[in-house]
Amino acid sequence: MLIVEDLYVKYYTRRGTVSAVSGVSFTMQKGEMLAVVGESGSGKSTLALTIMRLLPRNAVVERGRILLDGIDVLKLSEDEMRRIRGSKVSMVLQDPFTTLDPLRRVIDQFIEFLMEHGLDRRSAEKLALEALESVGIPKTLAYSYPHQLSGGQKQRVAIAMAIALKPSLVIADEPTTALDVVVQKQIMDLIDTIKRGGTSVMLITHDIALAIERADRIMVMYGGEVMEIADKGTIMSRPLHPYTQGLLASIPRLGSDKIPESIPGYPPDLRNPPKGCVFHPRCPYADERCRSIKPQLIEVEKGHWVKCHRVVKA
């Protein structure tokens, strides 16, 4: 189980301070898939890196708590955190072409990873082969170099490594963006199977259609803040935030005459975020209150949280 409370992350750059994540709070249950949806720059990848504690050196967690199965991740020492990565929380990264070391055989990288978490060589090799087998990578491919595998096969390897030690949480950061359409479906089917073992999956994506198709709950982020959280059905039937509505309207629909609309405007400059609601410059309903006062995230119905002045608690 994952609890994130009031998280603030900033990047210090030469051109100013970027508030990448501001006041993000949410929880994830055991065995559920939460999709974090947003444009690039919405803070979704920073959120993932913060949970993994893999932020670059110029990033600072200003405030907040991250509890993973009751452990305060942000308080762990570097070495304790290293032991947790890959075993308790693991990650599947976007581009399978750059995440496996091209100079080393798949099996060697897998064994190294398992031995780092306490297995001896023989049981590591056995477990690695089993894990690869379970994602559809045969033994012959296990002993080859990454460049001999296709993109989809590499992503399978990455998934096998991510789940081999049965972590409580797997973060999949745009796991299919770099792949062909047909392969995308296979990989997503594979990711679906992860939750069956009780592992929670955080699916990070810019594609709300994919989120609706696959996730149990959806969290929409914009400008480093949470705009709306609800289960998939609620998001589809009663989206309350104008940004969520905009995202849904942008999905192309088969058999519909309506041209999908994209949201006008550009993501905010987070070195200098807009006053009031971070979304107001692009919001069709923005009024004086939106331009001056930041709205709070409120629970409008059970499990449905929205950050918008127009929404009043029922």
Partner: peptide, 8 residues
Amino acid sequence: IAYRSRGI
């Protein structure tokens, strides 16, 4: 990053 995410 990939290596680090595996706890190496």
